[in-house]
Amino acid sequence: AEDTGVRVELNEEDDGKKSSIALKLWVEDTKKLKGKYKDTGAIEFSFDLENEVAEVVAQEMVESGFFLDCDVKIVGKSIRDRVALIKWRRERTVSSGN
């Protein structure tokens, strides 16, 4: 995945079954953000892999004051990339098990 400067990692073991999963997001490289970033630390949140959209969660982070509106796309992309990887891993696990 592209280095967006925003890191998103699993915040729990993925059992491959749960639709909602815990993620943790933090800024690794503030220079990649357009807006001024207030260092708040890592943000832990849950994300529903089946029913949620990364960009919507990114918008909620903006509205909660973690990021500025100009960075919503980069945050959304960072979440979307991680979610895609989690889904890909799950699919691969299922297909290798068959």
């Binding site: 630390g41 832990e44 982070m61 509205e63």
Partner: peptide, 27 residues
């Protein structure tokens, strides 16, 4: 504790915690 909780109006809970030091990108 260094953790803080922010609840968005949509109901999502964000928990702020320290960045894992070992995982910070080396500059």
């Amino acid at each position: 504790s260094a953790t803080a909780q922010v609840v968005h109006s949509a109901g999502r809970r964000f928990i702020v915690s320290p960045v894992p030091e070992a995982r910070l990108k080396e500059q």
